[in-house]
Design a protein around this nucleic acid. Structure first.
Lengths: 159, 159
DNA sequence: ATCATATTGATATGTTATAACATACTTGAT
DNA sequence: ATCAAGTATGTTATAACATATCAATATGAT
C-alpha cells in the first residue's frame, strides 16, 4: 500500500475481513472464488486505491497467476459482477468494494494526489438525476458518481 | 444523427443557436474558435450523442481538417476546457454541452440503446457525496455523474 | 519588427480493452 | 462411469483510446 486511506485503520484486519466476506458471498451465490479471482481481490484490497488492469496484471504475473490481459480483465469482470469491486470510470481503474455484498449505488471520493479511493456510504440519495430521469421517462440501470479532488493529507502536501 | 433526442426539437435551430453561443463565448473569453474547433463542436452538436475521439476524427478527416489523433484530442480538449463539451467517462466519449457557458456540474442520462446523451439540468444538488466529502475533509474539484439506461423509445424497441 | 505564446502538422508510442479460438476443469444427468 | 453442457483458463492478436515530442507556422502584444 503506497498511501494511507483517508482514515487510519487496521488494514490487515480490514483486508482479512473483506476476504472472508467475499468467500462467504461467493459460496452463498454459487460463484467460484478461484485462486486468480481471490488473489486479484486481495491485491485490490491491499492497495486501497484504484488499480489499472495492467497494474493488477503485473502483480499477478509476478506471482505466476497469468501474464496476458484477459487474465486481469476476466478477474475484474467477475469481481465487478459479483459486487466485490467497482470500476472507477474517471480513471479506467478498479477498486475493491468496501461495503457489504448488498446491492448499492456506489459513490466515490478519488484523491488525485495519492490515488486513494473512498467509497461513500450512500443509501439511495435520489437527487436531481432521478428527478430528471423520471421526467424524461428514462429508465436508469446503472449510475456512476465520482468526485475527484484532494484528500486532507494531500491538501497539506500540495499547499 | 442516427437517433432522436429524448425530446423532439428543432435540431437545426438548436445547433445554430449553440454555435452562435459558442462563438460569442470564445470572443468574450479571448479564446480562438478556429475552424477545426468550430467544426468539431458542430459535429458533436449535430450528433446529439456521445462520439468517440476517433469517430470525430473520421469525420474531420473526410473534410480534410486533419487525420491524426492529436487533431481530434486537441479540439476536444479545447472544447471541454472552454465548457462547450463534456467527456462521458463511462463511454470514453464526448458530447456537446447543451447548457449556457455557465460553470455547472453536469449530470447525464445515457441511453445504451441509441447512445443519445441528455444533460440533466442540475443546479447544485449537494446530495450525499458532498456530505461525505465534508465529513472526510475531502476537497472536491470535479464531479462525474452519469446514469446509464434506456430512453423511452428504446424501452419500447427492446421490449 | 521582434518576441512570446498559441496553434497546427507529423510521427511515434503508450495505455486500456476485447475478439477469437483452443484447452481444461466441474458438475449434473443418464 | 461416461457424456454433455457449462464455466474457467491459456494464448495470440488486435481494436480502441490517449499522449509525448518536436518542428513549423500563425497570432497578438509591445
Amino acid at each position: 500500500m503506497t498511501a494511507l486511506s483517508f482514515c487510519a485503520h487496521d488494514h490487515a484486519a480490514c483486508v482479512a475481513d473483506r476476504m472472508r466476506h467475499a468467500r462467504e458471498h461467493c459460496a452463498r451465490e454459487g460463484l467460484k472464488f478461484t485462486p486468480v479471482r481471490a488473489r486479484s481481490l486481495e491485491i485490490l484490497l491491499q492497495e486501497h486505491r484504484a488499480l489499472g488492469a495492467y497494474d493488477l496484471l503485473a502483480q499477478l504475473s509476478r506471482e505466476n497467476l497469468g501474464s496476458q490481459p484477459p487474465v486481469a480483465y476476466r478477474a475484474l469482470d467477475f469481481l465487478v459482477k459479483a459486487g466485490l469491486a467497482h470500476k472507477i470510470e474517471a480513471l479506467n481503474a478498479y477498486v475493491a468494494c468496501t461495503h457489504s455484498g448488498t446491492d448499492h449505488t456506489p459513490a466515490f471520493l478519488i484523491c488525485r494526489g495519492c490515488n486513494v479511493v473512498a467509497e461513500a456510504d450512500t443509501a439511495l440519495s435520489p437527487g436531481r438525476l432521478d428527478v430528471a430521469a423520471a421526467a424524461a421517462g428514462f429508465e436508469i440501470e446503472h449510475t456512476v458518481i465520482e468526485a475527484q479532488g484532494l484528500c486532507p493529507s494531500c491538501q497539506e502536501t500540495a499547499t
